[in-house]
Simulated assay, not measured.
Amino acid sequence: MTQKHDNFINGQWVAGATYAPNINPSNLGDVIGEYTQGDAAQLDAAVQAAQAAFPAWSTGNVQARADALDKIGTEILARREELGTLLAREEGKTKPEGIG
């Protein structure tokens, strides 16, 4: 069964009314996953959550923001093989291009 992915809005995973398949363009039989399709209400909720979070993020400690971005970058590098494989499937690229 293909994995379904929801939208992350205001700290929670939220399903939409429908899902759309993400298909590997170099192998049309390879469905990478199904992704929820947000509606206008979900878009509004996501924008409101981002606007509410922005003041604390923008006025927060610069070092804390740098540390958060460094942690994200470290995680991406640690998972480069996994993420590169997914990107190659999703975009129809070679694996080295996906990792790059």
Rank of each mutant, 00 (worst) to 15 (best):
A88P: 06
G16A: 14
G29S: 15
V62C: 04
A45S: 12
T59D: 08
E91T: 11
L69R: 03
Q63L: 12
A17F: 02
E75D: 12
G92A: 09
G16P: 05
P21M: 03
K71W: 09
G33M: 15
V14N: 06
T74D: 13
R89F: 00
A20N: 00
Y35M: 01
K95E: 11
A53D: 13
Q12W: 02
T18M: 00
K71H: 15
A46E: 02
N7D: 00
A50Q: 06
I23H: 05
S26A: 15
A20G: 02
E75S: 11
S26N: 15
Q51R: 14
T18I: 01
E91N: 14
G29Q: 14
G33I: 08
D30S: 11
E34W: 00
K4W: 03
A45H: 03
F54L: 09
G38A: 11
I32D: 07
L87R: 07
V47G: 01
A49T: 11
A64I: 08
A68R: 10
Q37T: 01
L43W: 08
Q3A: 11
G100A: 14
G33Y: 02
P96H: 08
E81M: 13
T59W: 05
E82N: 12
P25G: 10
T2F: 02
Y19K: 02
S58E: 00
V14W: 05
G38C: 02
A68S: 08
E75I: 15
A45I: 08
N7I: 08
I76K: 08
D44Q: 06
T36H: 00
L69M: 13
A64D: 11
G38Q: 05
T94S: 08
T74L: 10
A66S: 14
A52T: 13
